[in-house]
Design a protein around this nucleic acid. Structure first.
Length: 525
RNA sequence: GGGCCGUUAGCUCAGUCGGUAGAGCACCUGCCUUUUAAGCAGGAAGUCGCAGGUUCGAAUCCUGCACGGCUCACCA
């Protein structure tokens, strides 16, 4: 155990069984399971008792449906007309707050559109119905019919003529004006977070809008949305450690995909020419503000295009997302802002390092490079590859100073096993990584389509050692066979949907755009 | 993985110098027919994250552990 917030262990949900537990009494040793949940259990018992009273008066606490005819927001939007015509309205939602004053009460009900205030009066409802109303408490789901009016303090409300219990809540809601702030509880019991913190819903609606606008943007350009396997016998398309699983009937070791790339390219070879997939990838690596073990990535491939075309496509796509989700091309994130209407800056990976070193980084031998890394204060194990060294230097020297938005280009071939080499500059590939607000939001290249060269790159990956080896591309014979049939020149791009959502929803952590971010299991003992 | 911070009632938080647990909300009882942080009166509710140590005495000091947050390093 050893955590705060709601205890996740379920109480008995059958009323009768829970009731016969009776009042809590400590066991002989004075320490029992139930000890720590005494109060929570007491609150639960009180609510069970209210449920029982409802049932006694012939009310089903969990009916099947309610004829709602409008959302709370509409009452406000169309109030003048509704009031003039004395239009009866029917709303449904969760009761959040109640103010009882003897024979009259006010309550706020929340549905997906917002809140509506309800007004209950004993003389309008009748004594019996008002007694039923007294069994209702914050957290219960209620349907109410009545007539809109304005209170003397000016708040638009509904004078309730009849109501129905739609679901009895057996657990208390979080505190009503500080809300729920404990981040762990917010993530573990996201439903409470959503009920109580309206901004949370807003962030997730923005995320949905981002995805929707990505789809409509690509669909409009004749890209075909496809789905490819998540369970793969070989993992590839990125550098990452995979999750491993097993298929029983086939007695087969399978990996959860780390990228869609190699399957989507097979579809390009198959002649689909323009494809995209929005799906989950899984990487068995650390968790922090910008990383979750499962995350959503857009990958798209376009035949007869190159990485420059991908740049233009991404610029346009982000402009379109911004227009649709924010209504303009200026996007703000963490107090900074970026204008997406302008072309992005470009910075050369290799040249920026060479400038800093005052030597051509591609001409340095491994020892000189290692010396440079040591001089930069970055410490790495002695046996890491040249690619990892270059990556470390770039991360230490250049990345922190990148202005947004920027394309990093001219990556070394060693760290780009699936990208096509530049014909004019050997050792450098046609690749870019887009950076927004210091975050790497994607990766794109002119796809390597020479099967002989691709085999050689896979083989080079095989020489890597240790952790790097595990992260490296595998020699994928089935993919190579496909390539050997001929793949058109192709531009490909991956874009992190979670990170895009962070940016457009202006949320500081990937956990704020994932409903259920990965956490350690509760009660880890 | 490193550093810093946190964990006290269902929720949000106080808790002084080590002296044996507090508030508001929520809940229960009573009053209250236009409230909105409704109000008034009363009540119930705690293994002070877990384990060990120091002490006559630990929420408080020490050590270890768990969980969480922030941050640095690596990955999208």
């Amino acid at each position: 155990m050893g955590k705060k917030g709601f205890d996740a262990r379920p109480f008995l949900t059958d009323g009768r069984e829970a009731l016969i537990l009776g009042p809590f009494r400590p066991g002989p040793e004075g320490r029992t399971e139930g000890d720590r949940v005494t109060e929570e259990k007491a609150l639960f018992q009180v609510r069970l008792e209210k449920r029982r009273r409802l049932e006694e008066s012939g009310i089903r606490p969990y009916p099947t449906r309610f004829e709602r005819d409008r959302l709370a927001a509409e009452i406000t939007e169309r109030f003048d007309e509704l009031e003039r015509e004395k239009t009866p309205v029917a709303v449904a939602g969760r009761i959040l707050t109640i103010r009882r004053m003897g024979k009259a009460s006010f309550a706020h009900l929340r549905d997906r559109s917002g809140d509506a205030q309800l007004y209950f009066r004993a003389d309008i409802l009748g004594e019996e119905a008002y007694e039923t109303w007294k069994q209702i408490e914050a957290g219960d789901l209620l349907g109410a019919r009545g007539v809109p009016f304005r209170t003397k303090s000016g708040e638009i409300s509904i004078e309730v003529r009849s109501f129905e219990v739609l679901a009895k809540s057996l657990r208390p809601l979080p505190e009503k004006w500080h809300g729920l702030t404990n981040k762990e509880t917010r993530y573990r019991q996201r439903y409470l977070d959503l009920i109580v913190n309206p901004d949370v819903q807003r962030a997730f609606r923005t995320r949905a809008a981002v995805v929707r606008s990505v789809r409509s943007f690509l669909d409009a350009r004749d890209f075909l949305e496809v789905e490819t396997p998540i369970l793969q016998p070989l993992y590839g398309g990125a550098s990452a450690r995979p999750f491993v699983t097993h298929h029983n009937a086939l007695n087969l070791k399978l990996y959860l995909r780390i990228a869609d790339e190699l399957y989507l390219k097979r579809l390009i070879i198959g002649g689909l020419e323009k494809v995209y997939e929005i799906g989950k990838d899984f990487r068995n690596e650390g968790i922090d503000r910008t990383h979750n073990p499962e995350f959503t990535q857009l990958e798209l491939y376009e035949a007869y295009a190159d990485f420059r075309d991908m740049m233009r496509l991404l610029e346009e796509m982000l402009r379109s997302i911004a227009n649709e989700t924010l209504g303009g091309t200026t996007v703000s994130f963490g107090g900074k802002s970026a204008d997406l209407s302008r072309p992005w800056r470009e910075i050369s990976f290799v040249d920026s390092l060479s400038e800093r070193l005052e030597k051509d980084v591609l001409l340095l031998d491994d020892e000189e490079l290692r010396a440079a890394v040591r001089a930069s204060g970055v410490d790495l194990p002695a046996d890491v590859s040249r690619g990892a060294l270059l990556d470390a230097l770039f991360a230490a020297w250049i990345e922190p100073g990148i202005e947004t938005p920027t394309f990093v280009v001219d990556f070394p071939k060693e760290i780009s096993p699936l990208a096509k080499e530049r014909s004019d500059r050997p050792g450098i590939v046609e690749r870019f990584e887009p950076y927004l607000f210091g975050m790497e939001i994607g990766n794109a290249f002119s796809e390597l389509n020479d099967p002989i060269e691709q085999r050689a790159r896979f083989e080079a990956q095989r020489l890597l050692r240790g952790k790097e080896r595990e992260e490296a591309q595998q020699v994928d014979e089935d993919f190579l066979r496909a390539l050997e049939h001929g793949m058109p020149p192709t531009g490909g791009m991956g874009v992190g949907i979670d990170r895009l959502s962070m940016i457009f929803a202006d949320q500081p952590s990937i956990r704020d755009v994932l409903f259920f971010p990965q956490l350690r299991p509760e009660g880890g003992e």
